[in-house]
Design a protein around this nucleic acid. Structure first.
Length: 554
RNA sequence: GCGCCUGUAGCUCAGCUGGAUAGAGCAACGGACUUCUAAUCCGUGGGCCGAGAGUUCGAAUCCCUCCAGGCGCACCA
């Protein structure tokens, strides 16, 4: 709908210029917005205001020229007006809104799917936590944001692959194996001093216990290095399985799990370094190899091969990103915790050195979560082993409320997550507000059916009966849904969908309280049932993108 | 010290790549259930958009300088 207006406007501008009424100027971006105030029309354009300085003319004068040159071949415009400092406001014909309602019904679960991406291959990488322990609340936010961005882009016509990068090669993994070994020894009666670097959670003890009961105490005498390697792989696998289960119950699934170890097996890192060397981005200081990331605006160069001959995490990470591109992805999205923001310039340096556009790698920073319980900070230290896991949050507040809460803020805004609030089934908890709207509609439709009223089809209703201001507002809001998806996908901002849902639910609840859908008037009932059905379609589609269920009863 | 993020109503936050009178939820107060679900609705109050200067027709939004909070500044991941 907005696109149609944009076209008309574009056309009017071109005509004005051709006639010489406006000087030839370039307009980079034609903005058409749905104004907050209904008096300002259904859509409003600020083109005249933007052109004013370039064209050196009074904006209202320009608006007038534009208005005079508007042609409307499809006959969709009721009227236009010039208002304020030079806005051109468009009022559309009612028939257009009725058409839109029909369209929603026809498209049904496809409504809101748009062809923005044109099938472009995009990869979203997120979570990517070391398999050294269960996921905690901090990972949860990134998991939801990544998952929903992926859903959004899918709706917007991109081909999406969701990937989890398993950091299963570094020191941390070694510490994991060591931790399991120490617990193992402890279980056989040895007195153990645990170093700071070790993981202390109960899950370590469980894994040690399993090994002990399955294989006995033979590893007490084995070569320590080999044992640690073995324990690392056992523990890593087991923990990863737990992580997958937690994610699945959280509604998050992946298309690929990519192992850092595989990268080394295939010489990915060596080949990457050769490539960079040939391009002249690598230099040696005698002991270590450096990558000239400063050539691309990083504040200092970065080590890629350490003094001990081992590649750094960074080296592997560039190799990994090269691997992503070589798999044919045209755009790559990384979801990171905000504490990694300092890492961005060197990552961009990496891909630019390899000849890729900086814009091909989008990095979404997700701010840390401030976990509260009834307003008081809840303890969250990994060291002591006393942290709130994703599993605990799931068990306590449930998937829907947890996901919704994480989607209520912009990603780069700090988030207070209050466990007490999130599980409260009250008006303080917005997830129910939206779900309740859906349940209510289901209830209405069921009631209609019980009374022998069939779900209406468009041909049998008179949409002109939907002429209350609230009804028009609802229809216009429904039309804005695909536009919301467009904006959210373009800016990679899932919270926009959440805010949209809240607004839609709000307008519906208000309408519901004031008006009866089912009444003695059969024609009116049919029309309203049709409207309410359309609202349900949008609620379902949007909730699906958020990965939140749409219950029929509450 | 340097870099990134944040600062909007009592609290938690939106504000759609510069637009029309700055919004929502919660909290507070007052109302609405013999009616399709009261997990809802209606109404009231509440603001120097952190501060200051600048850019222009126009700034919460962009530039600069401060102030405050968070997070980074490894041959860790």
């Amino acid at each position: 709908m907005r696109n149609k207006i944009t076209k008309i406007l574009e056309n009017a501008l071109n005509v004005s210029m051709r006639k010489g009424q406006l000087p030839e100027v370039s307009l980079p971006y034609i903005e058409v917005e749905a104004p907050a105030n209904p008096d300002h029309g259904d859509y409003a354009a600020n083109a005249a205001l933007i052109l004013a300085s370039q064209a050196k003319q009074n904006p209202r004068k320009i608006a007038q020229i534009i208005q005079e040159n508007i042609s409307d071949p499809e006959n969709i415009i009721e009227k236009t007006q010039i208002a304020g400092p030079g806005f051109v406001n468009f009022f559309l014909k009612d028939a257009l809104w009725h058409e839109a309602l029909k369209n929603i019904d026809e498209q049904n679960e496809k409504y809101g799917s748009i062809d923005q991406g044109g099938g472009k291959k995009v990869q979203v990488e997120f979570v990517s936590a070391n398999p050294t322990g269960p996921l905690h609340i901090g990972h949860a936010r990134g998991a939801v944001v990544g998952d929903v961005i992926a859903n959004l882009l899918m709706s917007a016509g991109y081909r999406i692959s969701k990937e989890y990068y398993i950091n299963d090669a570094g020191n941390q993994m070694n510490n994991l194996g060591k931790s399991v070994l120490l617990r193992y020894r402890e279980l056989t009666g040895e007195k153990i001093e645990f170093p700071e670097t070790c993981y202390r959670g109960d899950y370590i003890k469980e894994i040690s216990g399993e090994i002990l009961s399955r294989e006995g105490d033979k590893y007490l005498k084995s070569n320590e290095e080999e044992t640690i390697r073995y324990f690392t792989s056992i523990a890593g696998q087991e923990i990863l399985e737990e992580i997958k289960i937690d994610l699945r119950d959280f509604g998050v699934t992946f298309d690929e799990y990519f192992s850092e170890k595989e990268l080394y097996k295939n010489d990915g890192v060596t080949r990457l370094l050769d490539k960079l060397q040939k391009q002249g981005f690598i230099y040696s200081d005698g002991e270590t190899l450096w990558f000239k990331t400063t050539d691309f605006g990083d504040e200092k160069d970065r080590v890629v091969i350490r003094k001990n001959g081992e590649p750094t995490y960074f080296a592997a990470d560039i190799a990994y990103h090269l691997n992503k591109f070589s798999r044919g992805f045209e755009m790559i999205i990384d979801i990171w915790g905000a504490d990694h923001h300092g890492y961005m310039p060197r990552m961009w340096a990496g891909i630019q050195a390899l000849g890729y556009d900086k814009n091909a790698l989008k990095i979404i920073l997700v701010q840390l979560v401030n976990l509260l319980r009834g307003g008081v900070p809840a303890a969250m230290s990994t060291r002591s082993g006393e942290f709130v896991t994703l599993r605990e949050v799931l068990d306590e507040v449930g998937k829907d409320a947890a996901r919704y809460n994480f989607l209520m803020r912009r990603s780069d805004s700090h988030l207070d997550f209050d466990l007490e609030l999130a599980k409260k089934q009250s008006s303080e908890n917005p997830v129910y507000y939206v779900q309740y709207a859906h349940a209510r509609i289901c209830s209405i439709l069921k009631m209609a059916q019980d009374r022998g009223v069939d779900p209406p089809v468009y041909a049998d209703i008179d949409p002109a009966l939907l002429d209350l201001p609230e009804e028009k507002k609802l229809i216009k809001l429904l039309v804005r849904y695909p536009e919301t998806i467009f904006g959210a996908a373009r800016s990679l901002e899932p919270h926009r969908v959440t805010f949209y849902l809240n607004e839609l639910a709000g307008v519906f609840h208000s309408y519901y309280n004031k008006n009866k859908v089912i009444s003695e008037d059969q024609r009116l009932t049919a029309a309203r049932l049709f409207l309410v059905k359309a609202i349900r379609i949008v609620l379902q589609n949007a909730l699906k993108i958020l990965g939140v269920s749409a219950p029929e009863k509450m």
